[in-house]
Design a protein around this nucleic acid. Structure first.
Lengths: 225, 225
DNA sequence: TTCATCTTTATATTTTCTTTATAATCTCTT
DNA sequence: AAGAGATTATAAAGAAAATATAAAGATGAA
């Protein structure tokens, strides 16, 4: 189901949007400040963001900028009429469309559907998997720990993807090898060990523990730090 | 001076738009039927077209189609609310934006200014995409870095356009090949590499870094220098 | 033809992957 | 609880794969 993130500090407007979108069949998350919105954005994989410009904590412009550092998710800016005219370059800086207050909810819905259609067609839906403070971002081939970007190589990414898709599930080295390499297991588990070791090193530079847990004699899994 | 063509059969709305635009400083031509509008369009070079959907003589959709056979001038569609929802694909078929009736004239003005800005403010032609200090100008097949003009070849332009449309998104060489060449991937990535190499050379003559970032084993993307 | 662009070829460079060697850790037995 | 044997960890070297770039050849339009 399409998930939409609303970042809007006005309670009533937030609720209005939320109800309209839920009725239409979207899953909705509401945030009421800039930092809160960005936090949510980081934790889940949204199909679209509705973003107010005047926000407490962090301005909408800054939220947009931070979102754009990681993702090309469609963002529709909401703002007062007089604001928008001076903010035209927002659309050059990453917003996909804008809507002025006061708005008609049907108008909002139409523009959301348009953006979703556009982005769905061009195949640009960046997938993310989240586990605790780790976010695996397919669009960037990058693992984020808190806000630090940890670039992963192709194989590292494949392994991490498996582990994060099913946290706590134990993968044998044979499974990891066959799934990440898409090849048959020849009895060589040394390679897998080296990759895991390298990842641990990278991850623990940015977090307390590395999240990769060895289950002796069985395999590895993703586990709370 | 920017010339705007209004194609709208309702006398009052036409007049309202016309007066607002003239006050704002545009030169305006009013048409009241589909064929009339297209006739005017053919005779002069407009910077933007405001197009009603319900028109006598020829539907707005058809007018848009005929305009698009000749020109990429920005077109903003105006229509009743209930109409627009079923016409979302209009924007995929050539419209650049839409406005629903009843509208606020300031809203119309803002969207017109946005489109003019996007389309390069001059004449009726090309789009511009901006990323950091890079500006890609569709009209001249040219990339501007700061103010230096970097001429791009056709294929170079296609690749750059893709990269700039979704900064940070990683494109595999296969994607680049298929999208820029509009052809199927035969397993030849060497060509793509050569083009990217050539572009890097051109770009870095005028900037600190080239903005093209290689993600080893995955693809390339546009990234902050 | 001539010019510019595109593709191919060949070689250099860079990054990643695997192997090797050695150290550390765990389990199990006594 | 100590030690053997097996398993895993890590660093570093070597092999393999992917990419960069220059230059030659092919293509196609004016």
């Amino acid at each position: 189901m399409e998930k939409i993130l609303i970042i809007e500090d006005n309670d009533e407007i937030n609720k209005l949007l939320r109800e309209m979108l839920e009725t239409t069949g979207y899953e909705v998350k509401s945030a009421f400040s800039g930092p809160e919105g960005f936090l949510y954005f980081d934790q889940e994989n949204y199909s679209l963001v509705l973003l107010d410009l005047m926000l407490p904590g962090m301005s909408g412009e800054d939220v947009l900028k931070k979102i754009r550092e990681k993702s090309s998710v469609p963002v529709i800016v909401i703002s007062a009429k007089n604001e928008i005219e001076s903010k035209l370059d927002l659309l050059e800086n990453g917003a996909d469309d804008y809507i002025t207050k006061p708005f008609d909810v049907r108008e909002v819905r139409a523009r959301i559907e348009l953006q979703l259609k556009k982005h769905g067609a061009s195949g640009g839906g960046g997938n993310r998997i989240v586990f605790e403070e780790l976010v695996l971002d397919k669009e960037n081939n990058t693992l984020f720990a808190n806000d630090a970007a940890i670039p992963l190589t192709k194989i590292e990414f494949s392994i991490m993807e498996l582990l994060m898709k099913h946290p706590n599930k134990i993968y044998s080295k044979q499974e990891l090898y066959e799934l990440a390499w898409e090849d048959h297991y020849i009895g060589e588990d040394k390679t897998v060990n080296v990759h895991i070791s390298n990842m641990r090193k990278k991850i623990s530079e940015h977090t307390k523990g590395d999240y990769i847990d060895t289950v002796w004699g069985i395999g590895v899994r993703l586990k709370k730090a």
